[in-house]
């Protein structure tokens, strides 16, 4: 249930704007990969190219290759809808569907895949996803209540449950804790630790301690100047990036000298 991602020479554009330049990297299965970097450096943009969500924004396009277990996500015959069914995503702000109950939210993705399910199978799947998202005990008595009634941290775990209910190969997280309080952040970080046993997890974060805590490998994105495309400065084992980075600008960023 987890796949390896190879990115070769990826360039990302919005219309004429060159957002990210020449990114190449390998993301290992069953590991947590974190992207750090100053605002506007293109790390979120890059993350969104991994499930073709950047195409949702008018003018978004890429040049280069993103290979998932060798298959190019951007080849002509690949439907972005299928890509997104294999590569789940969790957003910066928790976004459960307000018109659905907690259970309906968890099952939303599964229902899209138009699998016919019996009631008991649906209940079972919802329970498993919620347990895997460490949310079951908090919501098991109110599965039919609206998801928007939960706290921010619970909503975010509900979104994670919704993402893993469809059993994706990869889970992308775009600053999943930036709208959460410290306790909820801790809960999500614990969850990320567990998720990597089954999934390939890629996380963008502004919080360098978070990257250091949860990730196995870390990529540092930066841009030379405003208006210039962002690029991947260096990527290595998290331990190495935070203790002994190869590039001066990485050192400057993680020691708080800019960004």
């Amino acid at each position: 249930m987890s796949k390896r991602i190879d990115v070769n020479d990826l360039n990302i554009f919005y219309g004429k704007f060159h957002a990210v330049q020449n990114v190449s990297m390998t993301i290992e299965p069953k590991s947590v990969t974190a992207f750090i970097g100053p605002s506007g450096c293109g790390k979120s943009t890059f993350l969104r190219t991994l499930n073709r969500m950047h195409e949702v924004i008018p003018g978004g396009r890429v040049e280069g290759e993103v290979l998932m277990d060798g298959r190019d996500l951007y080849s002509k015959e690949v439907d972005p809808v299928d890509v997104r069914r294999e590569v789940g995503m969790v957003f910066q702000r928790p976004n459960p569907f307000p018109t659905m109950s907690i259970k309906e939210n968890v099952l939303a993705g599964v229902r899209l895949n138009s699998r016919r399910m019996s009631h008991s199978a649906a209940d079972e799947l919802a329970e498993r996803a919620l347990r895997d998202a460490n949310l079951w005990n908090e919501v098991k008595d109110r599965l039919d209540k609206p998801g928007s009634g939960l706290s921010g941290g619970q909503q975010q775990r509900l979104c994670i449950a919704r993402a893993i209910a469809v059993q994706p190969e990869v889970i992308l997280m775009d600053e999943p804790c930036s709208a959460l309080d410290p306790i909820s952040t801790l809960a999500i970080e614990d969850l990320i630790e567990q998720l990597k046993e089954d999934y390939t997890v890629v996380i963008v974060t502004h919080n360098m301690q978070q990257a250091a805590r949860v990730s196995d490998r870390t990529g540092f994105f930066n841009l030379e100047a405003t208006g210039r495309p962002g690029r991947l400065v260096e990527m290595d084992d998290t331990q190495k990036i935070f203790n002994n980075p190869a590039q001066q600008s990485t050192e400057d960023y993680i020691s708080g000298r800019f960004g």
Binding site: N95, P96, F97
Partner: peptide
């Protein structure tokens, strides 16, 4: 956010409209 949530789950445009 809700439209993107649906799309990220692998919804087609019509499914996105139906769910969000």
């Amino acid at each position: 956010l809700h439209e993107e949530a649906a799309l990220a789950l692998g919804a087609t445009k019509w499914e996105m409209i139906r769910t969000a």
